[in-house]
Nucleic acid binder design. Structure first.
Lengths: 221, 221
DNA sequence: CGTCATCTTGAACATCTGTTTAGTGTCTTG
DNA sequence: CAAGACACTAAACAGATGTTCAAGATGACG
């Protein structure tokens, strides 16, 4: 009855096929192609999930649950949660999950906000650890910085993703991730190590403008 | 015959309506809705543009030409090309253009690469000017840095864009841009002014690893 | 006036889509 | 065994969409 690893219920088989198809062909993949992949009729999807939206919801919940489960063991060696996707994609069998998440981020919906918010929360922790260890400098607004870094990482990833409407090659995803990281690593490290701006003229001007608007804030060096 | 500003050819009217609809409802907006907006029949679109793809191509070319025309006067006071979209959206009547561009970036296609490449080229120039003026520190790989900053800016923008599949409110776009910039300005300036990482351990380690792989490269401080 | 090219339309066509429905088997349960 | 609940299918339905087609309008030109 319940979803064992060897023998899958038709409902579970449909869900897995849906995640795979959605990842490969986009979130608007036809129900009939999913049904065909799962070896069932299109009507059975309606029987089990009620509607297309129901299937999407089931996929969303399953993906969210999978993240929750695998997060703990993935965060141990990991660190930067933005790199979590890359690491996760390397794992055997998890490429469809990552592809589905990417497509959700691309389309922007209910899951997107939750996922991004979760990653921002992880980034906050990660940065806080860095600040405590002395490897990361503190920020005037830790939450805003974490949000910015997460948005930068995810947004740049999506922008470079080689899949607009055309199918996404899940098998090539790990190699693509590796190549992408390799491409941005040097400029990223440089940007995070040596200040882009040579002086704090712009920042000071902004802080001054803000300070006059609100209460006078002391600039802690 | 030719597209005057007062009296529009049906072909031009269709193109304008298409850009508007594509910006508002997404790149997969029905041809019939475009035809209705332009006050023509759906068949006339086929007559003038051959197919849906032909209409898209015409829109792409028109947008690209508009950018080329308006770029010169917009770059004078501007600077950061990533902010060009925001400034352009403020201009009366240019919101549909910006919306169309955003949807193209979202979908990723032929235009996307060209647009991003163009912005990267602009960023290269902008950064080079900064380096010359002494306000921007030089990079080991100027091209890669320009690409990274452009990807960060555009990607973050798209990720935060309040439009997945649902219609994009072009009238509210300028206000949204202003609020977005206001939200990210402080962390961005901070990130660009004070190094995120307190020391160059990671960067040095990477450079050493690269240096041993290729020819021994001298780290210029 | 007649004719030809162009602009334009409305309907029809073909296809694809999510969804519904009626029916068939299969299994549990009393 | 009877009966009902459940899994499942095949077909049909209904709507939307890109595209085609035949014909009407319009204006230029001989």
């Amino acid at each position: 009855m319940r979803s064992g690893p060897d023998d899958q219920t038709a409902k579970a088989r449909i869900r897995d096929a849906a995640i795979l198809r959605f990842a490969q062909d986009g979130l608007d993949a036809p129900l009939r192609s999913i049904a065909s992949d799962a070896g069932v009729s299109a009507g059975l999807i309606m029987h089990h999930f009620g509607s297309r939206a129901g299937l999407r919801s089931a996929c969303d919940e399953f993906v969210q649950a999978s993240i929750r489960v695998n997060k703990a063991e993935l965060m141990l060696p990991a660190g930067a949660p933005a790199a979590m996707l890359a690491q996760l994609a390397q794992l055997e069998g998890y490429a469809p999950l990552v592809g589905y998440i990417l497509r959700c981020l691309q389309a922007g919906g209910e899951l997107t906000s939750r996922l991004v918010d979760g990653m921002v929360a992880d980034t906050v922790e990660y940065l806080r650890d860095g600040v405590r260890a002395g490897t990361v400098s503190p920020s005037r607004d830790e939450a805003a910085r974490a949000r910015l870094l997460t948005d930068f990482a995810l947004g740049s990833l999506l922008l470079n993703l080689p899949a607009g409407k055309d199918p996404l090659d899940l098998a090539a995803l790990p190699a693509w991730f590796a190549a992408y990281v390799d491409r941005i690593l040097l400029p990223t490290l440089e940007l995070f190590t040596k200040p882009l701006l040579t002086d704090s003229t712009l920042l000071d001007a902004y802080l001054e403008g803000q300070g006059s608007a609100q209460s006078t804030e002391r600039t802690t060096s």
